[in-house]
Nucleic acid binder design. Structure first.
Lengths: 220, 220
DNA sequence: GCAAATTAATGATTTATTCAAG
DNA sequence: CTTGAATAAATCATTAATTTGC
């Protein structure tokens, strides 16, 4: 059965839509992380594509009214499906975070589909989670760790005034590169469909979705 | 149902864990080493987290009461993963390219899962193709068109005024920012589950109304 | 104490770069 | 050289944490 869980793409246009805002996105604010204050006033302007769903102005994740969303040609009421489970973004539980960090520390960086599946399954014990969350988490964590480090490095540099040519911390790049140069070609993450086969156990809110598409078959 | 079609992957389970051998980032490399790190730890990373998150200084949310310090262990043993290597890369046929370009010209830029499905199915008539190919094609095409344009722009500029030794551009952000700041509410592609049931070359002749690709004129 | 207004974090997408097959 | 594939950086968007006025 395939549940064509339509990509959201267009959810409930309910959110206040912080539309424009300043966006200035300050070139660089060395002081601290970007403040980035999203003005959350009720401006509601967006007017999305408006091909469908003329949802109520306000209605977040509280499925109170059943708006018969009629996207494209799917008759399922997506509203229900969507609301109950993934309307909002993933919010990791402490346990999940702990595990993820442990894995990160152990060296995991860009898990492949299989790994993602496993991790997801494991973390699923502690709360709702999908493969993409795992993937994104690693992406973001990696990037932000790097960011953090870079920042501190810079700070240290400035403070000491004695710029170390080679900071003790030398980035994994070296290592990786070596690795690659050594033999194979780039590793390739591949977008597996990698679908978990979970049934509907319980209120199950697992909308299984992972990577964008499913790879068909080997070509060639 | 459930097509565990693992995408192409090619993992050589050889790499020794290299657990936490990360070093850090070299501040500046003239050559910009490429991090790139999918050679993931394929060692069994057993992580046991027996941490009872009893009461962190700042309780996150209503964590509920079902939190019984569970112990979790994730065993990642990727050694078995060795799927058939993904072979060669997609090589579009002229027909496919034609269609893709037509779609591009018609305004398609970042197709959502459903669109990708359709396009893939359609193009599948002319040769093997996977969803990711479609996705990548649009990504690349968009980027390269932009690149091209920028280049010509720059060239024009150079002709009129500055010598401009390096063709290296660095001001693309300007434009993009402007673009975003404009008005749009980002579209959001969402990773739909979008699962096709068709085995291989499923639909011989899907009449499928061609890519809607609505004139929605997304500002993109 | 509480609820709106801010701010800090961080999840989710998009764009820019880079690598390498053909 | 062209371009499919993949990752990193930048950015947008939402949520929790914190502050503020009552």
């Amino acid at each position: 059965m395939k549940v064509h869980t339509l990509g959201s793409w267009e959810q409930v246009p309910s959110s206040p839509s912080t539309s424009s805002s300043l966006s200035s996105s300050s070139a660089n604010n060395p002081k601290r992380l970007r403040p980035l204050a999203p003005r959350l006033t009720s401006a509601a302007v967006s007017t999305t594509v408006a091909t469908e769903i003329s949802a109520p102005p306000k209605l977040r994740k509280s499925l109170g009214s059943a708006m018969t969303a009629k996207c494209a040609s799917i008759d399922l009421d997506v509203s229900l499906i969507q609301m109950q489970s993934g309307g909002t973004r993933w919010n990791p539980t402490p346990e999940q975070i702990k595990l993820l960090e442990a894995l990160y520390q152990a060296g995991m960086r860009t898990p492949n589909p299989v790994q993602i599946e496993r991790v997801t399954a494991e973390l699923g014990q502690y709360g709702r989670i999908e493969g993409k969350n795992v993937f994104y988490w690693f992406q973001n964590h990696k990037a932000r760790e790097r960011q953090k480090q870079k920042r501190s490095e810079l700070l240290a540099n400035a403070a000491t005034a004695a710029p170390l040519p080679h900071p003790k911390v030398q980035s994994q790049k070296e290592e990786i590169k070596e690795f690659h140069g050594g033999s194979c070609k780039r590793k390739c993450r591949s977008w597996g469909s990698l679908e978990l086969d979970m049934e509907e156990e319980g209120p199950g809110d697992r909308t299984l979705e992972l990577f964008p598409l499913h790879p068909e078959r080997r070509q060639m």
